[in-house]
Design a protein around this nucleic acid. Sequence first.
DNA 1: AAAAAAATTATACTACTGGTATAAAAATCA
DNA 2: TGATTTTTATACCAGTAGTATAATTTTTTT
Lengths: 295, 295
Amino acid sequence: MNDRKKHVIMMAHQLFIEKGFQATSIQDILDYSGISKGTFYNYFSSKNELLIALLKELYFEMEQAQNKLLVGQDASDLEIFIKQVEVQTELNRKNKLISLLEEVNFSNDKEIIHFIRIGQLKILKWLHSRFLDIFGKEKEPYILDCAIMFTGILHINFKYYSAAHEKNINISKVVRYSVSRIVSIMEDVAKSKEQLFEPQLLGHWLPKNHQQKKVFQRDIDKTITALKSGIKDTDLEDKYLEFLDFIQDELLHAKKPRRHLVENVFNEMKKDLSPTNKKEIFALEVLISTYFQRS
Amino acid sequence: MNDRKKHVIMMAHQLFIEKGFQATSIQDILDYSGISKGTFYNYFSSKNELLIALLKELYFEMEQAQNKLLVGQDASDLEIFIKQVEVQTELNRKNKLISLLEEVNFSNDKEIIHFIRIGQLKILKWLHSRFLDIFGKEKEPYILDCAIMFTGILHINFKYYSAAHEKNINISKVVRYSVSRIVSIMEDVAKSKEQLFEPQLLGHWLPKNHQQKKVFQRDIDKTITALKSGIKDTDLEDKYLEFLDFIQDELLHAKKPRRHLVENVFNEMKKDLSPTNKKEIFALEVLISTYFQRS
DNA sequence: AAAAAAATTATACTACTGGTATAAAAATCA
DNA sequence: TGATTTTTATACCAGTAGTATAATTTTTTT
């Protein structure tokens, strides 16, 4: 993305934090970021689209920071989860993301509302998978309930805690307290077997492509990484690394992946690697074919 | 209030429910309720003031319905509490009050924001007193925490439950589930002695006059009722009933209670009643004097 | 360095908003 | 009936989001 465009988004974000979204006029953004109206409408077709660009960046930043903490760690460790939530909460606070989302949810713009909805569901889905890590498969019927209630408890605690302590906010305290509560609630509902939401609701809410894309991304990543590390032949290493990178990039990042090119490259590679990495090659083949079948 | 004015508020409420507050222009309200702009601004100085008038009515309706359920009942009965919350939730749903409040909280209108804040704190205060009834004095250090979390849990459960079940919303199920959770949380925090909010925060948040007014209202009511029923002298009954009603009305409903008038009437009465209702007369005297000291 | 292309600016414009002002008409009251 | 209040219709103001366009500046290509 253009540097100037990014700068405009940053300046607008600053204004949204200070005055709120509604109260910030486009003229304010123009003055504050020193661009003309024409340029603004060259970058964004509306104030709402600027907002979406901002939200995408904030979400991305959040996911990044959050996932960084988990790599190579024990997923069932509650402390890791607490750290992740702390990071999330701190970023929310810094970016005033929650009040921005709440405000903007009433903008009557379908795209924005959908975007926020998907964002919240993704958080729910993340919590669901993390709770599954932490509490184990046997608690599954109650995990969606607890994920939902956790967002509510954390949100309300943070809201009133902020109101009570103005600037000296001990995020860790609020997060730990809220996590303690949900741990206890999980025990409680598992024992009394009370259930409010059917577990399959989450899958029903989240459009398939969102889920599928994520799963696909992880699968292709795993398979290609395995294949890369399996190449012993140093003579051909450069060639096949290039091939694998090409396939990965084409499938994950290209707007219209070139089917025949990908399949051709794959078949070239299959000839040589098939005997040594049978399992992974097969997995990759399945991934590629199902990918093109879908689209 | 004028019937026509009430009608305008109703029509506006209808529009707010359908389109939201921001999205409803004053012109919409004029067209929908069939009045002219001049009349509108004769009734309300702005759209925001119309909103405040609406919110006042809705809050009043809610308090009424809620308190009706408690009279003559056992305050520690959890079932009564559940009924009260159900009524509250049903009215919220019917009036779309929650989303209206959330939307309007970003209106940058100080008065509205303050009004909503006070409203929420009053709900919290109500929950606090009800939890005190139900869970007992010994749980007091944790009652504010639980009141806060209860609002969060109920809110989030209702939100996702509505999303999942569209129109077939079983309010009772959501309320009962949420109440079960808070009962368990209360046990949990009382046992682990974890506390997030200091109990005195609520008193600190709610401006004194709000609390004091309520307390004062109840005290004066109690004292005067006791005095009324204590009058045995049928000859003087009419006279003293008139006196007591006057004092009560003057202190509770007059904009500027006439101090000397009230004190004079009270002293007239004191002469005759002092021996028979010593205690109550004294209590009333204290109430009157502290009342005028304050203002 | 020159030419072409793209980005940016300033400005004027439309249609709408909330809110003000006012004179005429209608309803209410004494 | 006559006076007073309420209501209406209308024109008006300043501010909003967004469009259109011609002129200018910057970047890219040759």
